[in-house]
């Protein structure tokens, strides 16, 4: 004969099942009331969003469906992808160069690289883009030639700087400044002992950079660059102000005609989202891969100096 309180406990612990051995019993964690409340809020918000998205007719999902694979939109998307790849490539190459100049033994070189980075990171990229678009107002003629000779080629800057070149130049130069900082951070993440070991062997600066510093800073540089890539993909929408026919521009062209502004902006957003989601999968793989190698490297005994030495050689 069991008492009521016992039967309640029995019910809760499900003791009608055979009791497990104490060493193999799972540990059940508490879920606080707060967690249930948070889930409830989450569900309510989701419900609200879904409801308005489907009941508010101004979204015009039929229009979205109609234009999401329209040829103009797809051409804009291709342009966006091309711009992203171009600007990231130029930006990364120039950024690497800047980062190397930034750690040059020659002070004036360091100063010039630093000034470049300060300028391009310190002014809005939108302003820079418009600036490049209007560069012809500043330098209407550009003479490319060999100094102190008559051999030269006069170039009409107005024709050279089309909207697309202004976009590529502007985004690349801006990206280079950010990329340079990423490279610099990566270089700085390399353990000082590595540089000393290389110096001790008599390695030249170039060899040290190529064989020791760059490979070892990849775990820091690659994931950050991946993030920049995703960022650049969205940043290209800025060049629509120059009239470059990328994704945002192409939907703008359509809604300027049809006045279906909201559904066409949704079309653009759908593509931006799809592409960033597609990109973030390889990005997460890259991050996982490099965080593992980094953990491996820094778990080695090499990274664990004794306490006394850490104090003795604090630098």
């Amino acid at each position: 004969m069991t008492t009521t309180s016992e039967s309640v406990r029995k019910d809760r612990d499900k003791q009608d099942l055979p009791e497990l051995d104490a060493t193999v019993k799972p540990r059940v964690h508490r879920r606080g009331a707060l967690e249930y409340f948070a889930w409830l809020c989450c569900a309510l918000v989701a419900l609200g969003v879904v409801r308005t998205v489907f009941t508010n007719e101004n979204y015009q999902w039929d229009v979205v469906a109609q234009y999401v694979t329209a040829e103009t939109v797809l051409r804009g998307l291709v342009m966006t992808v091309v711009l992203t790849v171009l600007c990231m490539t130029f930006g990364a190459l120039l950024g690497l160069l800047l980062a190397v100049l930034r750690v040059s033994p020659l002070r004036p070189v360091r100063i010039l690289a630093g000034a470049y980075i300060t300028f391009f990171r310190g002014t809005p990229v939108l302003v820079q883009l418009i600036f490049w678009f209007n560069i012809a107002a500043l330098y209407p003629h550009l003479a490319i030639g060999i100094p102190f000779t008559d051999v030269s080629q006069d170039i009409d800057v107005n024709r050279l700087i089309s909207a697309t070149t202004a976009a590529v130049v502007g985004l690349s130069l801006n990206q280079a400044a950010y990329q340079a900082e990423i490279f610099r951070g990566g270089f700085a993440s390399v353990d000082k002992g590595q540089i000393e070991a290389a110096d001790s062997l008599g390695m030249s600066r170039g060899t040290k950079l190529r064989r020791i510093i760059v490979p070892q800073s990849m775990p820091t540089i690659v994931p950050a660059t991946g993030n920049q890539f995703i960022g650049m993909f969205k940043e290209t929408s800025l060049v629509s102000v120059l009239g470059v026919g990328e994704l945002l521009m192409s939907v703008q062209l359509i809604y300027a005609r049809t006045y279906q502004t909201i559904p066409l902006l949704i079309v653009a957003c759908v593509w931006y989202l799809v592409m960033t989601l597609l990109l973030s999968y390889p990005q997460s793989l890259i991050e996982k891969k490099f965080s593992r190698t980094r953990a491996r490297v820094s778990n080695g005994p090499a990274a664990v100096p004794t306490q006394t030495e850490m104090m003795g050689e604090a630098k």
């Binding site: 353990d191 002992g193 590595q194 000393e196 070991a197 290389a198 110096d199 001790s200 062997l201 008599g202 390695m203 030249s204 060899t207 064989r211 020791i212 490979p215 070892q216 490297v297 080695g300 005994p301 090499a302 990274a303 100096p305 030495e309």
Partner: peptide, 30 residues
């Protein structure tokens, strides 16, 4: 410097190279 060898407390092996590549690094790269 190539004629002076230094062994560090924290080893400072190049983690991006195998043991063999570490040992080869001086002769080949320098």
């Amino acid at each position: 410097r190539t004629r002076i060898g230094m062994v560090f407390q924290s080893f400072n092996l190049f983690p991006n190279m195998t043991a063999q590549e570490n040992v080869m690094s001086g002769p080949v790269l320098v």
